[in-house]
C-alpha cells in the first residue's frame, strides 16, 4: 500500500523523510562498508535488490478476485536483516515509483518508513520472539511459525504505519487522530488483513523450499 505522490502535505512528507533518513543512512553505510570490504559482495547485493523488487512485483490473490503485491518485508528482514532491508527497501521503492508509479518521490520517505523500516523491524522482532518461544517445538514447526508471524506481522505493521501516517496528515475534524486512524485502518483492512495472512503462508512455502536447497 504505497502512498501516492502528492497525497501527503509537504510538511508531513518532509518530516517522514527526516524520520526515515537515519535508518536509511545506517543501512547504506553498512551496505557500502560490506561492498568495500569484499568487492565480490557487490553482485550479491545487486542480486538481493533485484530479488526484492521482483518479489514485490509478484501478484498474490486478494479478496474479491483482485490481485495485490506482497510487501516482502518479512522475508527480507529474515534473509537480509532489517538494516540492510532499510537500504534495499529504499532502492526498491525508488524503482517502484519510477518504473511502476507505485508510490511517489516526495512520499518516498513516508513509504520507506512504513515499508523498509517499521515493517522489517516488526517482522524481525516477531521472528526472533517466536523462534525463542517455540525453540522446544522442533525446527520445522518453529521455523514455520516464526516465518509466518514475521511475514504476516511485517505486512500488518506496514499497513498500520501507513494508516498512522495518513491519520496524522488528515485528523478527523471531530475526534482528531484516533478517529481518523480508525477510519483509514478500517477502510484498508478489508484488503490488507487477508493479504497479510496470504503473505505469511506464501513466505512459509518459500522459506521451507529454500531450506531444502
Amino acid at each position: 500500500m504505497h502512498i501516492a505522490e502528492g497525497y501527503l502535505p509537504w510538511q508531513h512528507a518532509a518530516a517522514w523523510t527526516a524520520a526515515a533518513a537515519p535508518f536509511v543512512a545506517h543501512g547504506v553505510r553498512s551496505l557500502t562498508q560490506a561492498v568495500r570490504a569484499d568487492p565480490d559482495a557487490k553482485l550479491l547485493v545487486g542480486a538481493a535488490g533485484a530479488f526484492c523488487f521482483v518479489l514485490s512485483a509478484l501478484k498474490i490473490p486478494s479478496v474479491s478476485g483482485s490481485c495485490s503485491h506482497p510487501t516482502g518485508a518479512g522475508l527480507g528482514a529474515v534473509l537480509f536483516r532489517p538494516p540492510v532491508m532499510a537500504a534495499l527497501g529504499t532502492i526498491t521503492l525508488l524503482f517502484q515509483a519510477l518504473l511502476l508509479a507505485h508510490g511517489g518521490l516526495t512520499t518516498l520517505g513516508a513509504n520507506v518508513f512504513s515499508m523498509a523500516v517499521v515493517g522489517p523491524w516488526a517482522a524481525y522482532g516477531a521472528y526472533r520472539l517466536v523462534r525463542a518461544v517455540t525453540a522446544s517445538a522442533g525446527e520445522q514447526t518453529s521455523l514455520g511459525a516464526a516465518v509466518f508471524c514475521a511475514a504476516a506481522l511485517g505486512s500488518l505493521a506496514t499497513y498500520t504505519m501507513t494508516s498512522v501516517q495518513l491519520a496524522l496528515a488528515f485528523p478527523d475534524p471531530a475526534s482528531g487522530f484516533p478517529g481518523s486512524f480508525a477510519t483509514f485502518a478500517g477502510i484498508f483492512s478489508v484488503t490488507q488483513v487477508p493479504l497479510a495472512v496470504i503473505e505469511g503462508l506464501v513466505t512459509v512455502v518459500l522459506v521451507r523450499l529454500l531450506c531444502r536447497v
Binding site: L55, L58, L201, V202, T203, L206, R208, L209
Partner: peptide, 9 residues
C-alpha cells in the same frame, strides 16, 4: 508463488 519466490532467490 512460494515456490516461484524460492526459485527466483
Amino acid at each position: 508463488v512460494g515456490s516461484l519466490g524460492a526459485a527466483l532467490f
